[in-house]
């Protein structure tokens, strides 16, 4: 009765060979195409270095002013402005300014990349039910696959550093952007689209003048989610050499520095709340005239 208690599995030798073949295949692939792929991703390197330099070289009072301006522009609410500035001041006082700027530049690049990739994919997804059916399971995998697993091939291909870190973050943060763009466009009122057609809009005009503006609040929710998920990846990305608030946390874990971990953890929470409030307030303000009331 042994076959009932232990699950029948493939032959050990066969499994070993299988893993060996795949591993060797991938290693060969890495050896022959690694440089090419690294070259392909080098613009990301430029983007990352540029945004990091921008944030690190700008004097801190100007950063505070810009953040205050963004908060005011997005929310028109003094409490959000004061909260945002206070968060950054506290982070600076506790000696985490530079790490925070590095993290913010990483989040900025990841969000930008997610929008650039996610928006067109989301639009395509809203156009075709078949594409939606293909893409949905892929997005599910991207969101549920433990990030360590896809870090392995990324590191094998690109080594340790900023770019593989960025790619890992984007893989995790991209799905909500795609999904919510798709959802937002699919939810646009059919009669409004009919009106756009009836007045002779081209497909492009319909997209730009009706679909995207009407989907924008939902797309903004997608951007907000993307930012939040990117922040959640900060510590994991630090394991493959991404600098910023994640690295002190990693050090704290390894050496049991309780306070160091808590400080940096709260700094991450702080900027998460800051980003969330600003982008949500903006989304809400966009919403204002976008729903027609019948009166």
């Amino acid at each position: 009765m042994a076959w009932l208690t232990s699950f029948p599995q493939l032959d050990d030798g066969y499994l070993r060979d299988l893993k060996k073949v795949i591993d060797e295949g991938f290693r060969n692939f890495t050896r022959s195409y690694g440089d090419m792929i690294e070259g392909f991703f080098s613009p990301l390197q430029t983007l990352l270095i540029w945004s990091e330099r921008l944030l690190l070289n700008t004097p801190w009072p100007i950063i505070l002013l810009v953040v205050a301006g963004l908060a005011w522009g997005a929310s028109r609410n003094w409490r959000v402005v004061i909260g945002s500035v206070l968060t950054l001041v506290l982070i600076g006082l506790f000696g985490m300014w530079d790490d925070t700027m590095k993290t913010v530049s990483m989040i900025f690049a990841a969000t930008l990349l997610s929008i650039v990739i996610g928006l067109p994919l989301g639009i395509l997804m809203s156009r075709s039910d078949r594409f939606q059916a293909v893409l949905n399971p892929i997005l599910d995998v991207m969101q549920t696959m433990p990030s360590f697993v896809y870090l392995i091939p990324v590191v094998m291909l690109l080594g340790i550093g900023k770019v593989p870190g960025l790619i890992a973050v984007v893989i995790y943060a991209l799905p909500p952007m795609i999904r919510l763009t798709n959802l937002g466009i699919r939810q646009v009122d059919r009669e409004v689209l009919e009106a756009a057609d009836a007045f002779g809009s081209s497909a492009w005009q319909k997209l730009i003048k009706a679909e995207l503006p009407l989907a924008l609040p939902t797309i903004m929710a997608g951007i907000n989610q993307t930012i939040m998920m990117a922040l959640a990846m900060v510590v994991i990305a630090s394991m493959i050499g991404v600098q910023g608030l994640g690295q002190p946390v990693l050090r704290a874990i390894n050496n049991q520095y309780f306070t160091l971990g808590v400080f940096n953890g709260f700094a991450i929470v702080g900027i998460a709340i800051l980003f969330d409030r600003i982008s949500q307030a903006w989304g809400k303000r966009l919403q204002k005239h976008r729903e027609v009331g019948h009166g």
């Binding site: 009122d189 009669e191 409004v192 009919e194 009106a195 057609d197 009836a198 007045f199 002779g200 081209s202 003048k209 009706a210 503006p213 009407l214 924008l216 005239h289 976008r290 729903e291 027609v292 019948h294």
Partner: peptide, 21 residues
């Protein structure tokens, strides 16, 4: 057809179908 819709016809809808933004 697009040119025809632009220049020959105009339509008014039951639920107005205005662009809310």
């Amino acid at each position: 057809l697009r040119a025809f819709r632009r220049h020959k016809t105009a339509m008014v809808f039951q639920k107005f179908a205005l662009l809310p933004h």
